[in-house]
Amino acid sequence: MTDLPLVVGVDGSEQSYGAVDWAADEAALRGVPLRLVYASLWERYEGGALAHGLGRTTEQILADTIVEAAAERAHRRQADVKVTTEVLPEGPVTVLLREGRDASALVLGTRGRSGITELLLGSVSLAIAGRAECPVIVVGCGPERRPRIRTEQRVVLGVGEEPNPAAVDFAFRAAADRDGTLRAVRAWRCPAHESTDHPLLAGEPARLHEQQAVEVLEEALRDAVAEHPSVRVRRQTVEGPARKVLVEVSATADLLVVGARRRHGHHGLQLGRVAHAALHHSACPVVVVPQRA
């Protein structure tokens, strides 16, 4: 088991503190340390109001207050988890992408404080999810996205057309850590031009595409099933757009895992429509797992 930390990006918002709560529980499950990082640009604001008697700018004090509050919250949540903090005078994308090189995963809240800042931090989360070298977990804190308390935790894995063994492995390990059930979902669609009104042929194209979806699902899971025999796996093929299907199944899930792949000629990971939809609309925390090189 890796001892690389879970890294959480904190910014003082309630959303980022919700991500700290979730990450503290996850670190306890995995037995890994927790690292809380605040990307501060306070050095650019030197010359502003000073904190009298402390020799520090108000931006420095704000940054320290944010990470101290986050650390205290993590300790209250999981007292046995080792927690470290750091304030770095750089932009959040630069900081978190670098932190992700030595992290088991990056954990982020969905939005910032309010108004335009929400849109800004939302774009930061998307940039990180699309470019990080490690899994990125985005945690919402709205009433519809709070972690649920169940006897059995449910992990959903979205299986795409192209295999992503890293995403499959992450989902199986997450289910094993939670002693939960893994629901592997493959969406499929029958192109309209393949349909026919002939009564003897009606339904045949649909059955063909459904069977292909079953085969893709079985192939994607085969190795992981053998490596994780204790994980209870529920296989499901569903007709419909993948992004819509996964958002719908997230309503009864505790974690949704999707993959992202590297495309030749592009910088970093490129998030497709499925990952975008999951990050924006999932009713549970979402993990975007990059395909291993």
Rank of each mutant, 00 (worst) to 15 (best):
R292Q: 13
E204V: 15
R262V: 07
R154V: 02
S40T: 12
V168F: 06
E227G: 03
G55Q: 10
R207T: 13
S16V: 12
T65K: 14
G158V: 13
E133V: 12
E90S: 11
A251W: 09
Q212Y: 15
R44S: 07
R146G: 09
E219P: 05
H198C: 03
D179K: 14
L4D: 11
S123L: 03
H75Y: 10
V95P: 07
R273K: 03
F170V: 10
R76F: 02
A69T: 01
G140N: 12
A171G: 13
E90D: 07
V93A: 14
S16T: 15
L41H: 09
G48P: 01
R154W: 04
L256C: 03
I137T: 04
T58A: 05
P135E: 13
T94D: 13
V124I: 11
A184K: 12
Q153M: 02
T85R: 00
A27W: 06
R77I: 07
V245H: 03
L4A: 09
Q211S: 12
R98G: 08
W188Y: 12
C284Q: 11
P191Q: 11
H198M: 07
C134P: 10
T2N: 15
Y38L: 11
V289S: 00
E162N: 07
A283W: 02
R243K: 09
R150E: 12
R189I: 09
M1S: 13
R30T: 01
A278V: 04
R261H: 13
L208I: 15
Q236C: 06
E90V: 15
L126F: 05
D64I: 00
A51K: 07
D179R: 15
V287F: 03
P165M: 08
Q236A: 11
P205K: 03
P163W: 14
R292I: 10
D25N: 14
V216W: 08
K244C: 01
Q291T: 15
G18F: 12
L106D: 10
V225F: 03
H280D: 02
R77P: 01
A167P: 01
G9W: 05
P163A: 15
A202C: 02
S114V: 14
D223A: 14
V168E: 09
A174H: 09
A24N: 06
G265Y: 04
A49F: 14
A220I: 03
R243I: 05
I137M: 11
I128P: 07
V32W: 09
G91W: 04
R173W: 08
D102W: 11
V93T: 02
A253Y: 07
R183F: 06
L97Q: 08
R262G: 08
C284M: 06
A184V: 01
L6Q: 02
A220C: 08
A224Y: 09
E218D: 14
L29V: 01
E59Q: 11
E144M: 12
P163V: 09
G142Q: 02
H267S: 13
V136T: 15
V93K: 01
A19Y: 11
V155L: 08
V238W: 04
V274L: 06
T151W: 11
L269E: 04
S195R: 15
V216G: 03
